[in-house]
């Protein structure tokens, strides 16, 4: 396959319709949206669970309370990533 024919194929595909363009942009921005939204909560949850494990290791008798609070913190932190996921769904599929 020569370069010329490849170029011809690309040129033939240039006149893609508006819907296709929108879908392509949606798909790529959906990936970015979710990827970016996952960074902060990823760091946050890691830090949170690490601290919780440290607290539980220092005071095993209060492990129950720490665990409950840890789940609460994870839930609040995770919400950001989940909103990113919803944005992903909206961009990708709507």
């Amino acid at each position: 396959m020569s370069i010329a024919s490849t170029t011809a194929q690309v040129l033939a595909q240039v006149d893609i319709d508006a819907d296709g363009l929108k879908a392509a942009e949606g798909a790529s921005s959906a990936g970015f949206a979710y990827g970016l939204a996952a960074i902060g909560p990823g760091i946050g949850i890691g830090y949170l669970v690490g601290q919780a494990v440290q607290a539980m290791a220092r005071q095993p008798e209060s492990a129950g309370t720490v665990q409950t609070t840890m789940f609460l913190g994870i839930a609040f932190t995770e919400a950001l990533a989940l909103i990113g996921f919803v944005v992903f769904i909206l961009l990708k599929f709507v």
């Binding site: 839930a75 995770e78 919400a79 989940l82 909103i83 996921f85 919803v86 769904i89």
Partner: peptide
Amino acid sequence: SHAVRLFANMLA
């Protein structure tokens, strides 16, 4: 956020 937390987790 309360609803989306559950919904998005399970959908994911």
